[in-house]
């Protein structure tokens, strides 16, 4: 992984984890700053240009380590939380809401893992009922694994925690750290997919579908729980046919009886994020389509959406049982 520069908050510069990260990265300018916001939150930045050569920012987070997951996010009605040890994603998916959320395309890695760990431990101790924790809401948790060593620190926290489930949402094939250790029953690796045409058009820098399926196969074989996330469904011609082909490809390789869960979700985005993204990509066909507001979120107008969704769900249920399927509302 090559960065254009590495920014380091002065207060974390001497941490062993920071020194270890620097040792793992190529020689690039190392720049100190007081707080990461000085670099990350500045106005007059262009996310689109920065995506051509993003920098890494090593910072410390002070609060809000573990937050309630948005309503409708996730695979059941259990209490659920998310935590973001990182902001921004190494991939460049055109439909991603992160483009509208942040001013900068640089990656912020919060290196005070111990503070996240303490907050997670507190939450785990006080849950008292089955609880789901999501990682990968504001980033892709595995994509920067060779640098961040996320799994090495966070996975042991979920050992001997039968009431807690950790879902790692990803499009990455960086699974070595998972294969190198014993699988955990309560950790789910959830891989996101869109059909081939959509992936080619809108998922830039993302490993190809075949490699993602292969990563899941290896994980399954090693005993890890894997899940499939078909999000976002983007209204396109031949959509149902493309999903039929994708499902056939995935379920032809994976052990379908050993899949933790499968979900679908439509393209939805807060209106203000969408506005910002349109300004960033005025020439992008995806955002030039007709839109409508649904429950405060921007959605692509598609009069056939309900019918298409039904066909896709029916197709999916040919491969998996309905108790393992859910439709993501947010």
């Amino acid at each position: 992984m090559k960065f254009s520069a590495i920014y380091i908050e002065e207060q974390v510069a001497d941490l062993p984890r920071v020194q270890a990260i620097l040792a793992r990265t190529a020689s690039v300018p190392v720049i100190t700053c007081e707080r990461y916001g000085e670099v990350f939150n500045r106005k007059a930045q262009n996310f689109r240009l920065q995506k051509q050569a993003p920098a890494l920012i090593l910072a410390s987070k002070f609060s809000n380590f573990v937050l309630p997951a948005p309503p409708g996010y996730g695979f059941n009605s259990q209490p659920s939380f998310y935590f973001s040890h990182m902001l921004n994603c190494v991939y460049d998916c055109r439909y991603c809401f992160l483009q509208g959320m942040y001013s900068s395309a640089n990656y912020v890695l919060f290196v005070n893992y111990e503070d996240f760990g303490a907050a997670l431990a507190k939450k785990l101790a006080t849950c008292g009922e089955p609880t789901v924790f999501y990682s990968g809401y504001d980033c892709d948790s595995l994509a920067l694994e060779p640098i961040s060593r996320f799994c090495e620190y966070y996975l042991p926290m979920f050992e001997n925690q039968p009431d807690a489930t950790l879902e790692i949402r990803t499009k990455s094939t960086q699974i070595r750290s998972l294969l190198d250790r014993e699988p955990l029953e309560n950790v789910v690796i959830a891989m996101s997919f869109t059909p081939h045409k959509s992936a080619a058009k809108w998922e830039h820098k993302v490993p190809v579908i075949e490699k993602r399926i292969e990563a899941l196969r290896k994980l399954q074989q090693a005993g890890w729980q894997v899940a499939l996330r078909f999000e976002p469904l983007l209204a396109e011609q031949e959509l149902t046919v493309e999903y039929q082909q994708l499902f056939a490809q995935i379920f032809g390789v994976l052990d379908r009886d050993n899949i933790h869960s499968v979900s679908t979700g439509m393209f939805r985005m807060p209106a203000d994020y969408f506005k910002k993204i349109v300004r960033l990509y005025p020439d992008e066909a995806l955002f030039a389509k007709s839109t409508e507001v649904k429950a405060g979120q921007i959605a692509l107008h598609n009069s056939a959406e309900a019918d298409q969704m039904q066909i896709i769900e029916n197709e999916l249920l040919r491969y998996i049982t309905s108790d393992r399927y859910y439709h993501c509302a947010s």
């Binding site: 254009s4 520069a5 720049i31 000085e38 500045r42 930045q45 051509q52 050569a53």
Partner: peptide, 19 residues
């Protein structure tokens, strides 16, 4: 890669796109 105004401590960080 960083510009500091010595008079007031203001800092600027020109994005490092040029390699």
């Amino acid at each position: 890669h960083k510009i500091i105004d010595a008079a007031n401590g203001d800092s600027f960080y020109p994005p490092q796109l040029l390699q």
